[in-house]
Each structure stands twice: as structure tokens, then as C-alpha cells.
Design a protein around this nucleic acid. Structure first.
Lengths: 142, 142
DNA sequence: CTTGAACCTTCAGTGGCTAGAGGATGTAGA
DNA sequence: TCTACATCCTCTAGCCACTGAAGGTTCAAG
């Protein structure tokens, strides 16, 4: 029987986050001691590890909910899990493309700044006038 | 004199977002009509364009506040603006590196899934067991 | 039996918006 | 001048995925 603190250490998840996952129904309600403290077993540890690992790979909690559900039904076809992962991959690739454009622009800004007064600062100049940008970039909401 | 809607269209910023920027002190309080509607001039349009462009380049509102402040003082040395941009560039590079690791892992997962039952799904298997990952990845909080 | 680390609940806050309710204003056409 | 209606106003609440703190209780070691 594991305390929430032990689970926290084993998975690198903050205690509050574990309670939060329980609150939103991602983790099941665990057993309790007489005094009301949570006690977990190893299946719950596995589940939390799955969640954490998925989060590290950038899956949303909603996607993780679906993945967990699929994981709980071993006889269903796995197309869906596959689709979720593909979707995630696509998102990652889109974000990378955007970041690449940003990097180009930022590099150029920094490179061109010669260190005088703010009045002549290329960084600020570029920010003032989008038309100075060579690439399209649209980071907002990424 | 521009209405908030015109400003919205010209900068691609939602009306509510403009009001939000005013509320947090990023945009100045504009003049008002007798009836209480906001009216902007071209300097405010410039300021909003600056903000939007900076957001597109991924700067936080706090960073933008600093940049705007620097922009308002043309005689100060521009080291600070430079430093802010460099910091942002560094962040972008770090995020790219993380995303690259994620992409590798996701690609491998998707590639190895042969489309059977969820019980044998490589996607789910990898999520279950971090030790199957070849690269370090730590997307959370990125 | 005492100490104190770890646990409990509840509430509020983060960033950067976004949505909706319910009502007021401004402007173009009849 | 009247009317229609697009646009404006304020205010409140919600999104995601947590994180922190207040104030109190429980558990295990010594």
C-alpha cells in the first residue's frame, strides 16, 4: 500500500497534481485509511505512470482519457489509439515548423542589433513593423 | 478616430482581447465618445501592432511590457531589448529541441503499430513503459 | 506518549485569452 | 425624424493543466 507521497516520488508528479487527476476523474478514487488518507496499489501506480508519460509526450488530458480507455479494452481494434498518436505527431510537427520560422526571425533581429540606443535598435524596429519579417510566422495559440 | 472594431480588423486582434490589454495596462485607456464608446488614434494602432507582432514571435506579455517601455525611451541603451530577444531565442531553441525528441518517439510509436488489437498496440505499450523510449523527452511545462 | 513529517480539504491564482448575457450606442437608409 | 440593426458597453465566468497556501488532522518512529 502506497501513500500519495510515495506515488508522487515514484512518478515525479506533485501530490496536488495527483489529487487533481482524481478530482477530474482521470485517476480512480483510491482506498482510504481509517483516518481518511489515500492508499494506492500498484495498478494505480501504473495508471499514473501512463498518464505522466503521455503528458511528457504532449498528449492532452482528454487524449489521455481516450488512450486509457482504449488501454482498458484489450480486444478492441487499435486504430483509434493509432489515430490519436498520429494526430499528436502532426501537432508536434506543426509546432516545430512554426518555431523554426520564429527562430529565423529572432536570430536575424538579434544578429542585426549593433548595441546603440533603443532609438536605433533593430529588435524594436522589427517588432514595430511586421513587413520587415522575411518569413511568415504565427505563433499565437500554438 | 478608429473604433475598437476597426482596430480589431486592422491588427487581427479580437475586440475582447483589446479590452483585455487595456484592463491589464498594456494598452492605454483610449478616448471615449459621449456615449462611452472607445475611440483610438494611429499611435494606439501602432502600439497594438507592436504587441501583436511580439506575441506572434512568442514574447510573453511581461516581456512585451518591457519592450514597449524601452521603445518609449529612445535614448536608453538597447542592451536590454537585445537581452530580452536573446532570451526568447534561447527559449525557442529549447522548445524546438524538446519537440524534436517528442517527434522521434511519436514517429517510432506510430510506425511500429501494425493495426491489430489494442492489447498488442505498440502505441499503448510505449506509453505504459517509459523505458521503451530511446530519447529523453520532457515536454511538460514547455 | 510525543514529535513532526506527511497528510487532509478548500479556495484562489497562473497566462492569455474567449464566450456569453443583457443592455446601450451609433449610423445608414426610408 | 424614425427605425433597424450592427456594433459597442460592462460584467461574469470559463478554458487548460496545474500550483500554492491556509489551517487543521493523521501516522509512524523513537
Amino acid at each position: 500500500m502506497l501513500t500519495i507521497g510515495t506515488l508522487s516520488k515514484k512518478t515525479g508528479t506533485k501530490v496536488q497534481t495527483i489529487r487533481y487527476y482524481e478530482q477530474i476523474g482521470l485517476m480512480p478514487e483510491p482506498g482510504r485509511t481509517e483516518g481518511g488518507q489515500r492508499r494506492y496499489d500498484s495498478s494505480q501506480l501504473d495508471r499514473l505512470s501512463f498518464i505522466r508519460h503521455s503528458r511528457q509526450l504532449g498528449f492532452s488530458l482528454d487524449a489521455i482519457r481516450e488512450l486509457l480507455d482504449l488501454s482498458d479494452h484489450p480486444n478492441r481494434p487499435c486504430d483509434e489509439a493509432d489515430a490519436i498518436a498520429r494526430r499528436q505527431l502532426k501537432q508536434v510537427e506543426q509546432r516545430m515548423a512554426r518555431l523554426k520560422a520564429l527562430r529565423t526571425e529572432l536570430k536575424r533581429m538579434v544578429h542585426e542589433c549593433s548595441g546603440g540606443r533603443t532609438a536605433d535598435c533593430r529588435v524594436l524596429e522589427v517588432l514595430r513593423d511586421h513587413s520587415e519579417c522575411l518569413t511568415e510566422h504565427d505563433e499565437i495559440g500554438a
